[in-house]
Amino acid sequence: MRHKDYMGLGILLLVIIFLPFVITNDYYLGVLVFTALNCLTCIGLCLLMGYAGQISLGHAAFYALGAYATGILTAKLGWSSWMAMGTGVIISAGVAFLVGVPSLRLKGHYLAMATLGFGAIIHIVLIAAVNMTGGPSGVVGIPSLHFFGIELNTDTRFFYFSWSTVIIGLLLALNLIHSRVGRGLRAIHGSEDAAGSSGVNTSVYKIKVFMVSAVYASVAGSLYANYVNYIDPGPFDVMHSVLLLTMVAVGGMHTIWGAITGATVLSLLPEFLSSMSDYFESLGLSYQPDYDTLIYGGILLLMMLFLPEGLVDGMNSIRRITSTMFIRARKKLVF
């Protein structure tokens, strides 16, 4: 298992290094940066949902906390971007603790609704607290990130930087999964009672993994603010939380690679569909970005009905089936 994980990391690294040589269009690099940010958030969400088995429908709120911490602290108070990102992480972890302590005592539907409510409250505050957040018009003039003296102001640079963050995030998440704590978390998912009677402090573990996943989202949010240099409440609504959950669920919750796959596929899908719009028109259909909601809903529903374990598991079972078919076919040929 572990060797496969590190092989996967190696392959991902190679793809990332060479991709900007193939894709030189800035727009597409930008799309890939957003993909990286979604991957980062989804890694955290996957730790929470897939490994510890706790649902969150409020992760866009932590994404927002990171973005607004960076936005407000850098553009309005003139802090350095790194300090702002760090403060965002601390704030997000603190809020996750405050929300997590009462919420994670709840289970199933109650937890889902509590986190959904939390996300909705944060979104309302972003719009209403005009003095601090700029309200609906948001925060402008957020500076770009500097990394060892290099300003990350081109799409290629930010592409490398954001995906490096994903690799580091992935590495840390894999460390966690294959550790004593990781086994404790997965045990909670398998059977909370048995985990407790094996000595796992289930309530503390759930709160801590909630905080870890909030930190991932917060870092992604800060990077988002640094990249687009402008934020408003739009992308941080409840729908974004649902979209993040969709990404994790579509890719397959039980492995971190599922989260990466889901985040990548669903981030690229709208671009793919709109690039195909000429083709759709030749069929007499017109594709509009408005259809995204419908398409996400449809994909999520189909996945849950027919491939509830997600794309990664689904591909594995398809491979198994085809390979047995192949073997059978070969046997027939031989005899």
Partner: peptide, 24 residues
């Protein structure tokens, strides 16, 4: 891994060490 969960109370490493130190 199931049995390794049983070793939980006989080992110590917490969240921070688990995140930072690779398994090997």
């Amino acid at each position: 891994e199931n049995v390794m969960v049983g070793r939980h109370i006989r080992s110590k490493s917490g969240f921070i060490i688990s995140v930072l130190v690779p398994p090997f």
